[in-house]
């Protein structure tokens, strides 16, 4: 059942590969204006300087130090940790160490999460039905489910806020300080850190699982109540802990494998011109793979949930049709 769900998840992602591409396009379009702003900051700081040559051909840390000393807002995030695989380590480490991005990016990330909430209705609906819903069906489901999912996301936001506002500092400041206070061996401190990451990670992933299955049950069973979906999710997790955990581990292994591959393939420092575009393309391919894996988590979990129902492709809501209103039909005529 677990392997079948895992394979079924990949099949669903593959059959609806346009969604991965669409999501990738979304991140691209959202990031682009910010990247243009950073580009302008860099170009403005370099001006007609000769320093630009070295910066274009490779990397010039002396210039970089000067730039970051003067940069504010978005420019302040332009540090060497954006290079190659350091970028991946930095972003994952940010989550586990609760390092918040600068305010300028918080708005972007908030917007992205809102859009994701909107799209996740259509995505889950498509994965649950296992047949093309086309754009009209996809967006119809997205719109129909948005406010329900938004309520669920708001609840999730509250839980994550409590987790990062209270649990993380308690664990990584108070408990960490007490546990490592007398430690004179860095390696031992690191082992403790790993234990803390593990503990925090388990809590984080458990919460993720609860909200993932709440979304799935909300969509598949056409639930109206976010709280009801949460309760149903908890019941499902309670009844099938091994299946759910095993599938999550299998999905997680795919994520780790991708990171391992990217750690080898990620381009480091390169010149402008063709190398720049190749590196950018490699980065986009990696991001596409990240999104595919993210979608696979949802698809495989949907498959697992449906496999526990009487009908493996059951969805409660009728196939979405849009536009539905008479007024819109009039427009069509």
């Amino acid at each position: 059942m677990i392997v079948a769900s895992w394979l079924g998840g990949w099949r669903r992602v593959w059959q609806a590969s346009g969604m991965a591409l669409g999501l990738h396009g979304l991140t691209f379009l959202l990031a682009l204006p910010f990247a243009l702003l950073v580009r302008d900051q860099i170009a403005g700081q370099l001006g007609s300087s000769l320093a630009a040559g070295a910066v274009a051909d490779g990397v010039n840390n002396d210039w970089w130090r000067e730039f970051t000393a003067q940069a504010t807002g978005l420019g302040a995030t332009f540090t060497p940790s954006i290079i190659g695989f350091a970028s991946t380590l930095d972003t994952v480490s940010r989550v586990l160490d609760a390092r918040y991005p600068p305010t300028a990016l918080m708005w972007l990330l908030g917007g992205y999460l809102t859009l994701w909430t909107f799209l996740s209705g259509g995505i889950l609906d498509r994965y649950a039905r296992q047949r093309p819903t086309h754009a009209h069906g996809f967006f119809s489901a997205s719109g129909r489910l948005f406010f329900r999912l938004a309520r669920l996301t708001a609840l999730g936001g509250l839980v994550y806020w409590l987790l990062f506002r209270y649990v993380h500092p308690w664990l990584f400041l108070d408990v960490w300080r007490d546990v490592t206070r007398g430690l004179g061996v860095e390696r031992t401190a690191f082992i403790w850190r790993l234990v803390f990451y593990l503990l925090f990670g388990i809590v984080l992933l458990k919460i993720n699982l609860v909200f993932d299955y709440a979304r799935i049950r909300l969509v598949v069973e056409d639930r109206r109540s976010a709280l009801g979906a949460l309760r149903a999710s908890l019941q499902f997790l309670w009844r099938h802990p091994l299946d759910i955990t095993a599938l999550y581990a299998l999905d997680g292994a795919g994520f780790v494998l991708l990171l391992a591959l990217w750690s080898v393939a990620a381009p480091g420092v390169y010149g402008a011109g063709l190398a720049m575009w190749l590196a950018f393309a490699a980065g986009q391919l990696y991001l596409l793979a990240r999104l595919a894996i993210k979608l696979h988590f949802l698809a495989s979990q949907t498959a697992l949930f449906q496999s526990h129902l009487a009908h493996a492709s059951y969805t409660a809501a009728p196939a979405p049709a849009w536009p539905e209103s008479p007024a819109a039909e009039l427009i069509t005529r």
Partner: peptide, 14 residues
């Protein structure tokens, strides 16, 4: 060149 690298970082952060 560098804004494209930064963009990949930002997308990954998202």
């Amino acid at each position: 060149k560098w804004s494209l690298a930064w963009m990949v970082w930002l997308q990954e952060l998202m």
